[in-house]
């Protein structure tokens, strides 16, 4: 008998755990304030908030570098923060200010920062899937060692781009990880009404790639599964599909009356708040104290408060710059 050694499973140290906690808290506070300031009329357009789903973005992106690409969705703030996009620049972008990360011309649904490997939030449902395949093809062709991670929702799993993208990634053996954030609803439609598969991960088998279901409210579960999927992509073993079962604490968009789900359901999921669960897990292991967490929370609130103050004080883009950076000539 002989054996083939494979990669070992992951371990997460204290610093990494606290960093994940801080990133998840940054997303939560960012979203809470975005919702509040949207209601106050400070944010043009729509905002779709990611609160509740933080464990997915952070569990995945904490294992990526600036050399790796991600594509995102209309609910993209969490992905941006997890990928390291400047938070003050994001707040200014939401307000459409010239200090925004896209100089105020992208807004909530088109935040992008190519330097950080964040290829953009995307107003088109399922629009990020072909883009991730393209980014993965770039990484493979140029031999950068990078991978592409594509975040999309349960609704996007019914779009043609999903099926085309998985097929293309499979036949070209692309270094891409498809991460389906199944939060239970495509806008207001429950998954069981819009999707023929009880688990979207099942659809991977049609393209002969691995498909895994993971608890999207548990950052450890996401981290572990993503670690294996990312390592697989980096090794050149091809794409995989992770389905993270998660939940959004806010409605589909700010202003959504959320008549399609019960308050009991929301409360049930809030009891499984991924940030509270992570904090409790760290405390239970004696790796940090309440004082440590309070210091992080204070730092995050200060960061966001400062960002909003700066964004409010910043200027809108000048009218003569309306077409600058908007179109690209090839």
């Amino acid at each position: 008998m002989s054996v083939v050694e494979t990669s070992g499973a992951v371990a997460i140290d204290r610093a990494a755990l606290l960093d994940m906690y801080e990133r998840m808290t940054q997303i939560r506070v960012f979203e809470d304030l975005a919702g509040k300031n949207f209601a106050a009329g400070l944010v043009p357009g729509f905002v779709h908030l990611y609160a509740g789903e933080e464990a997915v973005a952070v569990g995945v992106c904490s294992q990526l570098t600036d050399n790796d690409f991600i594509t995102s969705t209309h609910r993209g703030h969490g992905h941006c923060i997890a990928k390291g996009v400047d938070i003050a620049g994001m707040v200014a972008e939401l307000m459409g200010k010239s200090t925004g990360i896209c100089k105020g011309k992208g807004g909530s649904m088109h935040i992008a920062d190519v330097e950080k490997g964040m290829l953009g939030a995307n107003g088109i449902v399922g629009g990020g899937i072909p883009l991730a395949c393209g980014a993965a093809l770039t990484a493979k062709t140029l031999g950068t060692g990078g991978v592409a991670v594509c975040f999309f929702g349960d609704g996007a799993a019914n779009q043609g781009t999903f099926h085309e993208g998985l097929n293309l990634a499979a036949i070209w053996n692309l270094p891409v990880v498809f991460v389906c954030e199944n939060n239970g609803y495509a806008e207001s439609t429950p998954v069981r009404y819009h999707c023929s598969a009880s688990d979207i991960a099942n659809r991977a088998s049609a393209y002969e790639i691995p498909g895994v279901v993971v608890d999207g409210l548990d950052v450890f579960a996401v981290y572990e599964a993503a670690s294996e999927a990312i390592a697989r992509a980096r090794r050149g073993d091809g794409p995989s599909l992770l389905e993270a079962k998660t939940y959004r604490f806010y409605g589909h968009f700010q202003g959504d009356q959320v008549t399609y789900r019960t308050s009991d359901e929301l409360e049930t999921f809030k009891k499984r708040d991924p940030i509270i669960a992570l904090r409790a897990a760290i405390v239970a292991r004696g790796l940090a104290t309440d004082a440590d967490f309070n210091a992080i929370d204070t730092r995050v609130h200060q960061l966001l408060d400062d960002a909003w103050i700066a964004a409010k004080a910043a200027a809108f883009p000048a009218p003569e710059e309306a077409l600058t950076d908007v179109y690209v000539t090839y």
């Binding site: 688990d199 279901v213 993971v214």
Partner: peptide, 12 residues
């Protein structure tokens, strides 16, 4: 549908 589809060769 667990992670063994990624780390081993479990069938879906």
């Amino acid at each position: 549908k667990d992670i063994r589809r990624l780390v081993a060769h479990g069938s879906t």
